[in-house]
Amino acid sequence: MANYGMVIDLDKCTGCRACMVACKVENNTPESNLWMYVFRFEEGEYPSTKTWFMPRPCMHCENASCVKVCPVGARYKRLDGITATDFDRCIGCRYCEVACPYGVNYFNWQKPEENYYIDWADPDLPSELNGEKPGYANPDLDQAYGSENRRIAGGGHDKGVMEKCTFCVHRVEKGLEPACANICPTHAIKFGDLDDPNSEAAQLLRSKPSFRLLEDAGTSPRVFYVGQHEPGPESRQIEEISARV
């Protein structure tokens, strides 16, 4: 069994946010649900200023606090390390959102068809769309995955249900890397089996000093960062994206 993890090279990240958009298209997430978020930070005072960037997917923690608090077993760990969400089972209590120290859970406040950027019910949209909302709906998201045979890809996006990054489990099961790693223009995001010393992720992790976010929280994240440093109180967020309401 693979032991999946992600290693992000902050020395290569240009903060372009292509990974955010690729995630949104691949997983058909509704407005404001940013499973991948790229922080842009500024530190210091003019002219001794520093600007840097940090992508933040779900940490897929080994010791995941969200899993512990889920009262219905909708949030669970797969044997390959992915922290999954069974959308059919989620009751929307939002305990996971409270328990997670990384803020990666997104609650669906609206019906997805009312929250997909444009009016997909427009009568002039052609019949080829077959009523798909959005038109770029990914058919892989509606399948059940894993030996437990649960619907854990995409997110369902139903009103009242929680969703977050799945490490693109539907792609991983096909042998593809997650959408964010696939799109990254500077190849800063590497995904793979951390137990396989030949995986690109494991190689990158060995190449430089690394850190994980909020190590003190004891969550043991499966996302590692190399280059730069852990953000602290001196790191001011710039060009932040807030939800459109």
Binding site: C16, A18, V21, A22, V25, I118, D122, L125, Y136, I183
Partner: peptide
């Protein structure tokens, strides 16, 4: 690879 604009323009195919 693609930039954010490259991957995001998919919306243009369908935008009513």
């Amino acid at each position: 690879t693609l930039c954010p604009k490259g991957v995001g323009q998919i919306m243009s195919f369908y935008d009513p």
